[in-house]
């Protein structure tokens, strides 16, 4: 019985949150990797672009609520996704037209484009600050829990409760759908194949008659969808604090690089690697050991390897270790 309690404990406090957080990182990491693979620069505006898309979802959620529109037990924010995605893509294409395309046509080195993206990041942050402000906002409505700890205890008679938040299941479920559609698109459709060909060998793609303008457009479109959905899911699960998204860029980049930058499935996996590492290394295992060890061996400390404040240090360490020992990542992406 204690053993089952221990498993439930881990499931509740590590596995489920890690899967959720990992899915959110994965969407961001695929965004980073697509931009890197196709447009060939590290986009430092990633976090704030996700925040930007989420901002529209928050505003539209408030608007929908004021109109009395809701999505039943599901969060109203899900209804706003298509509109938020639309605004996001429009914003990205505007930025591309007025900022990135100039450097792309000039064939600037990737470092220069990365610096330009830092500029775009500041602009995006400023717009967010003006439009919605920096304060914390909750925009989750509908049913908050699928399974409450108390109900779980009553059903199973265990000491440990398992809480399943609706946002956790929604995140995992939506991520799987979005990522499957994206992989289907990249691997099976003509446009997807031309995107991969362009990412692989730009000159040869041009010689094969692939239109680079179309590729850029499609890439930003997919990036916009991923950024917005990733941002909204993160905001629903935690809360929408615009500048937390900026901090999330470190684990997102770490995920993209761990997986092998330029490889979408690597980024997808990388998201979970980073999330599980962060959560497993910062979880206090005291209660877990109390369950599985005999009373005499009961730990006196929290048995926590690192304080949760060091969460980002873990992503950073993984990033450094990967860059030192396997710079091409798990799936042999482009070398950095």
């Amino acid at each position: 019985m204690d053993f089952i309690n221990a498993i439930i404990l881990l499931l509740n406090f590590t596995v489920l949150p890690a899967l959720t957080y990992g899915s959110q990182l994965a969407l961001g990491a695929i965004f980073v990797t697509l931009i890197y693979g196709v447009l060939r620069f590290a986009n430092f505006a990633t976090g704030d672009m996700m925040s930007f898309g989420t901002m529209f979802a928050v505003l539209l959620t408030y608007y929908f609520q004021s109109l009395g529109i809701n999505f039943g037990i599901l969060p109203t924010a899900l209804l706003t996704i298509p509109f938020a995605v639309f605004f996001m893509i429009f914003y990205m294409l505007t930025m591309d037209k007025f900022v990135f395309s100039y450097y792309r046509i000039k064939k600037s080195p990737p470092v220069q484009l990365a610096m330009v993206s830092v500029g775009v990041m500041f602009i995006t942050q400023a717009i967010i600050r003006i439009v919605i402000g920096p304060s914390d906002r909750r925009f989750l409505d509908g049913e908050k829990f699928i399974l409450k700890a108390k109900e779980f205890k009553e059903i199973t008679g265990l000491n440990e409760g398992l809480t399943i938040k609706s946002t956790q299941i929604l995140t995992i479920f939506i991520t799987i759908i979005v990522v499957s559609i994206m992989f289907w698109f990249l691997n099976k459709t003509k446009t997807g194949k031309s995107m991969r060909a362009y990412s692989d060998n730009e000159d040869l793609a041009l010689l094969s008659g692939i239109d680079p303008k179309k590729i850029v457009l499609i890439t930003w479109t997919i990036a916009g969808i991923l950024a917005t959905i990733g941002g909204i899911l993160y905001g629903l699960d935690k809360s929408y604090r615009p500048f937390v998204y900026f901090n999330n860029m470190l684990p997102i980049f770490a995920a993209a690089i761990v997986g092998g930058i330029g490889k979408p499935y690597g980024a997808f996996l990388g998201g979970y690697v980073i999330a599980f590492a962060e959560i497993f290394l910062t979880y206090a295992y005291k209660k877990f050991f109390i369950y599985i060890l005999p009373d005499s061996l009961e730990p006196s400390s929290l048995v926590q390897l690192l304080s949760t404040d060091y969460k980002f240090a873990i992503s950073f360490s993984i990033l450094v270790i990967v860059l030192l020992f396997r710079p091409s990542g798990i799936f042999e992406g482009k070398k950095i």
Binding site: R196, A197, S199, D200, N201
Partner: peptide, 8 residues
């Protein structure tokens, strides 16, 4: 050189 798409 680079006359194929090596990831495809």
């Amino acid at each position: 050189t680079k006359n194929v798409f090596s990831d495809l």
